[in-house]
């Protein structure tokens, strides 16, 4: 494209001899703005504003952390999955999440943030993960509710990220979204089997939906007028739609699916609004959201403790791998020297 060609030379950050004065900085900034405006991708070696880089690192890290913390509530049921087919599906899903964590930490590395540094921030509470994973998986049906609602909400959030202005993140999201859509379908199918099963299974499914519905709506973040980072992220085309807009879209998708499942969404105010062309829904309890965010959710302590423990207990393994690699590469280094 013409725009890309025109700005190609100005976009790439100089590697050595930083002699760029204010004039050069302005040229880079203009090239950056033009790339974003033209809906093209910013790549790792391109110049970018510090705040853009910081916003992306924060968002990608939070996303990566959510994938690895998100393994816990579902892995909680791997050893108890009630059929071998379900067990295979669940293991594959949890394994996918580890894989998503890997792509995302790699995407963050392209911005200069190492996985080690980001994990350290997760473990010390300086970076967050999606609050939804601070809710417990109490029954098998919760595995279905997570797939249908939590992964469904994640897809609604993430599909627009496939067009995010930062190339490595956008490309990682293409792959993640394909897998998430499989996860969402398995969750729906799991709940359908329960809903059409014995009365006890049906009740288990309804109970799970009752508990996961509201937290899923909170996954889209605070209302637009209270969202701290939204406006700038929209301008940078990291974010494409507002929190409330995505939330409405999600509710509209879920209502007919709940009806097909034969399950009720726990909101007496939920009804179609002909005029707006969307469903109206009841007020979200933002006090609960803020409490969970602050660390007072049912599983905050448990999740981070398990994560830290796995990391600490694995330290000797990582050290061994590093020591082995050092021993077996030092030979080549000596030869090269």
């Amino acid at each position: 494209m013409a725009t890309a060609a025109a700005h190609q030379t100005a976009r790439t950050q100089p590697h050595t001899g930083q002699d760029s004065g204010a004039g050069a900085d302005e040229a880079y900034a203009r090239a950056f703005d033009a790339t974003v405006a033209a809906d093209e991708r910013i790549e790792p070696r391109d110049w970018m504003p510090d705040a853009y880089r910081a916003t992306l690192v924060r968002q990608i890290a939070q996303h990566a952390h959510s994938e690895i913390i998100g393994m816990q509530p579902e892995a909680n049921w791997i050893t108890r999955a009630p059929s071998l087919r379900r067990k295979a599906i669940l293991m594959a899903k949890v394994q996918d999440e580890a894989g998503h964590g890997l792509y995302l930490y790699s995407a963050a590395e392209t911005l200069g943030a190492s996985r080690e540094e980001l994990l350290d921030k997760l473990h010390s509470g300086r970076q967050k993960y999606s609050s939804i994973f601070n809710y417990p998986t109490l029954t098998w049906a919760d595995v279905g509710a997570i797939g249908w609602l939590v992964d469904g909400a994640a897809i609604t959030n993430q599909v627009p990220l496939c067009r995010c202005s930062y190339g490595p993140y956008a490309r990682a999201m293409v792959r993640v979204c394909k897998e998430e859509s499989f996860h969402q379908r398995q969750g729906y199918e799991l709940l359908l089997a329960l809903s059409r099963g014995t009365p006890e299974q049906h009740a288990m499914a309804q109970d799970a939906v009752d508990r996961w519905w509201w937290p899923s709506l909170m996954m889209f973040g605070p209302p637009d007028d209270e969202s701290a980072h939204s406006a700038q992220s929209m301008a940078w085309k990291i974010k494409r739609h507002s929190n409330d807009e995505l939330r409405r879209r999600f509710v509209d998708i879920c209502v007919p699916q709940a009806a097909s499942l034969g399950l009720t969404l726990p909101d007496p105010d939920l009804k179609w609004n002909e005029e707006r062309g969307h469903h109206d829904f009841g007020a979200i309890d933002w006090t609960e959201f803020k409490e969970v965010l602050k660390g007072n959710g049912p599983c905050n302590e448990q999740r981070i403790t398990q994560r830290r423990r796995a990391h600490e207990e694995g330290a000797w393994v990582r050290e061994a791998a590093a020591a082995y690699a050092a021993k077996h590469s030092s030979g080549t280094e000596v030869e090269q020297a």
Binding site: M91, A92, Q95, A98, G99, L102, A310, G314, A315, V317
Partner: peptide, 22 residues
């Protein structure tokens, strides 16, 4: 091996052990 999921010493091993278990 499935018992390791969420507890592995490094993220690559979550994937590898999960793969072997599958």
């Amino acid at each position: 091996l499935g018992e390791w999921m969420g507890h592995a010493p490094v993220l690559e091993e979550e994937v590898a052990l999960g793969n072997i278990a599958l």
